[in-house]
Write a protein that binds this DNA or RNA. Structure first.
Lengths: 126, 126
DNA sequence: CTTTTATGTAACCGTATAGTTACGTATTAT
DNA sequence: ATAATACGTAACTATACGGTTACATAAAAG
């Protein structure tokens, strides 16, 4: 099995995850691959609707299709989720940082940037 | 400062993150709070368009608005992203598991489930 | 061969979305 | 008071989206 280093656009991934039905499909697939029809039966909407969701999930590479006779087994592909995890990485630091500290820092930055326009007005406004 | 334990619906969060402009706004806010107009100037689209994106981000609690004179400072709120992180948690195990192993496991599960319907047909198909 | 089963696609529909321009409102400057 | 600034909101438009029903195709069953 060859490993190809594919880059997953956060665009298609986030878009795919934005729909609750599609997230539910992924949740189902965590318990194991399933044929399309079986997935469809788990939802109150029509089978073609699920088929369209699956197409979108396929294009986002979040699932892989494996034809098996007249069935099509859908398998979870977690790789794009790893990309989401990477995207989140940039924000993790903010979970630890006290928001108060952050706010103070940030406002001093803003003050610096606008200081030119404000310089000739009353300076003690803050 | 009181801490209120708010639950963020993954629904609104994922939906907010699905748009590239909104993700870019959040990326900008990582470098510090900014007034709405300054954010708008960073994009090729109109100011009202950004204003609408900000409203959506507000409703998803991904940003907080702080009125300051005639400015409205927008500040990043990472809390809902932590919820996304939690959601991802259920999938992290799949990043380690060999997909080949997973596939084998999963297909045996499927075989088990369909064994009833298949029992009276040729059993050596696999 | 014909029928049934499993699934995708096409065509259509109502609603949501992302953009626009025009306007309203509150705050600061003159 | 009046003008300018920094926003938000309303109204409108084109397109995307999620759903439906009807149809197409391919494999398995009879």
């Amino acid at each position: 099995m060859r490993h190809r280093s594919v880059t997953y656009s956060p665009e298609s991934t986030f878009h795919a995850l934005a729909d609750p039905t599609r997230r539910a499909v992924l949740d189902l697939l965590r318990q194991g691959s399933q044929p399309a029809g079986q997935l469809a039966r788990a939802f109150p909407i029509s089978r073609p609707a699920i088929s369209k969701h699956l197409r979108l999930l396929r294009r986002a590479h979040l699932v892989q299709e494996h034809r098996q006779g007249r069935h099509r087994l859908y398998q979870l592909n977690p790789a794009p989720l790893r990309a989401v995890d990477s995207w989140l990485e940039q924000y993790r630091v903010f979970w630890q940082t006290s928001l108060t500290n952050l706010k103070a820092f940030v406002e001093s930055e803003y003050a610096k940037e606008t200081s030119v326009a404000v310089s000739k007005k009353k300076r003690g406004e803050n």
